[in-house]
Design a protein around this nucleic acid. Sequence first.
DNA 1: CTGAGATCCTGGGGGC
DNA 2: TGCCCCCAGGATCTCA
Length: 270
Amino acid sequence: MPELPEVETIARGLQSAIAGRSIAAVAVSLPKMAVAPPNLAFAQELIGERILEVGRRGKYVVMALASGRALVVSLRMTGRLIVQKTAGPPHPYTHVTLGLSGGRRLCFADVRQFGRMRLVAADEPWADRLGIEPLSQSFTPQAFIGMLSGRPTPIKALLLDQRRIAGVGNIYACEALWEARIRPGTPAKRLSRPAIRRLHGAIVDVLERAIAMRGTSVDDYVDAQGLRGGFQNKLSVYGREGSPCRRCGKPIVRTVLAQRGTWWCKHCQK
DNA sequence: CTGAGATCCTGGGGGC
DNA sequence: TGCCCCCAGGATCTCA
């Protein structure tokens, strides 16, 4: 499932592969996957547009268009954005295809159909519910302390809340909590200042290391060029139930917290 | 505001 | 071996 490092990797790949190209054709085979503002036709609006640059906000891929509008893509669990040469069959489970200048096409594929490609107007505040970017200057230890203050919510559930921190998902929440030696179920308000500082550093560290490895491919994640990431080999706890903790050697356990699988070490996460 | 629960989907894993 | 059932999982919406 693509989280911040995977989406960042995809966005960088798209930036080098399709930035500057114009959209010559649009094919939508599953209409719910392609959303446009009211009374506007997705395909018709996009034809003739040009993709200026591709970036990321939280777990969303953001394609800035020449008109000032944007194409915002949510990949959810199984969504993919794949750039291909126009010849040959499209990527499996492609529901939206953008035919681009220069003989390329962008396939938006998704087995489970949870993802969305949304055309947003220039003045549409589409990201107004998203929280702080954890790799931005504004994510300071002080800001993090304020975010957790007084909250009874289990710290892991809080890390997954996109309204607070945008981009952290299940994999990196588990990994950061292990790195900071914090029990996932700890109420946020019960964490000490040093623990919060450790966790702040761990979040930034694990996200940066994962980006450097081009993301984690535990299921079937691939980037815009169809390549797998490398961080799955560096995971400390996620998906490692029964395997020895890399720090203390005790077996990693799996529990359920906030309706999500949660992997952690009972011995060294207090 | 906050949290809990439902919802959307389908491949694949587990159970028999 | 083969078949069927059921579940994971992110964001969004409803409801308390």
